[in-house]
């Protein structure tokens, strides 16, 4: 019968309007009702001191009028900014710089005449990652033979200047050590979650404490 299809279509859209289960399956920065504790956390204050210093906002929050934006749910393997880099693990071999398809990693190591012994590493002077040109392919992480460099989970790291987008070694040292589990099966095995979990120490994130010769040969076989 001609004309039934358009009426059926009206029914479908009405169903989507009315049924709550069909709504909001698209994540769109949902607003969440904030408690005073949440607000205090946002302002980096103690909850009790926040209650006394901002009585109006606290009262509004208790009634349920204050909202904060919730971040999108992320998965543990998310490839994002804020690279987690472990100074203790890095030997300064610059594999990451070699593998970067865009050549945006710059490493300078101090070779000032010191003969390195087994187990020691170079002193890293410069480690610049130009996030402004990074495409987050993660090949640098894949290339790192000592599991020193990991992807982070951040996004929305907008700045006002391009120069601020270059992450230098000091910032890498200070950054949160919350490595993404991308190309780190050992972290997946431990069911580590960078978004919910705490920071990971340098001795927890490696495949092995110090790669032995055999293990290195396995990975870098058949040159």
């Amino acid at each position: 019968m001609y004309g039934t299809g358009i009426i059926k279509g009206l029914g479908i859209t009405m169903k989507n309007l009315v049924l709550p289960t069909r709504q909001f399956n698209i994540h769109q920065y949902p607003n969440r009702k904030a408690s005073p504790a949440d607000l205090a956390k946002l302002e980096e204050k103690n909850t009790i001191s926040f209650l006394f210093s901002n009585p109006i906002r606290s009262a509004r929050a208790l009634v349920g009028l204050e909202t904060i934006e919730e971040r999108l749910p992320q998965h543990a393997r998310f490839r994002g900014e804020e690279f987690a880099w472990y100074d203790q693990r890095c030997t300064g071999c610059a594999s990451c710089a070699k593998y970067c398809p865009l050549g945006i990693i710059k490493i300078v190591t101090d070779t000032s005449g010191v003969n390195l012994q087994e187990g020691q590493s170079y002193d890293i002077e410069t480690f610049d990652i130009d996030i402004g040109r990074c495409m987050f392919c993660g090949l640098c992480v894949e290339a790192c033979p000592y599991d020193a460099l990991h992807m982070g989970s951040g996004f929305e790291e907008g700045t006002y200047r391009r120069s601020e987008l270059v992450i230098d070694v000091e910032r890498l040292r200070k950054a949160d050590k919350k490595p993404s589990t991308w190309f780190r099966p050992q972290l997946t095995d431990k069911s580590y979650d960078p978004i919910k979990g705490s920071e990971a120490n340098w001795d927890e994130v490696g495949r092995h404490e110090k790669p032995t010769g055999d293990q290195q040969r396995d990975r870098w076989a058949k040159r």
């Binding site: 859209t13 989507n16 309007l17 069909r22 709504q23 909001f24 698209i26 769109q28 607003n31």
Partner: peptide, 13 residues
């Protein structure tokens, strides 16, 4: 707002 609900979006909020 209503069009957003029809389209399982939120609309201006």
């Amino acid at each position: 707002r209503v069009l957003g609900r029809f389209q399982v979006r939120r609309g201006p909020n």
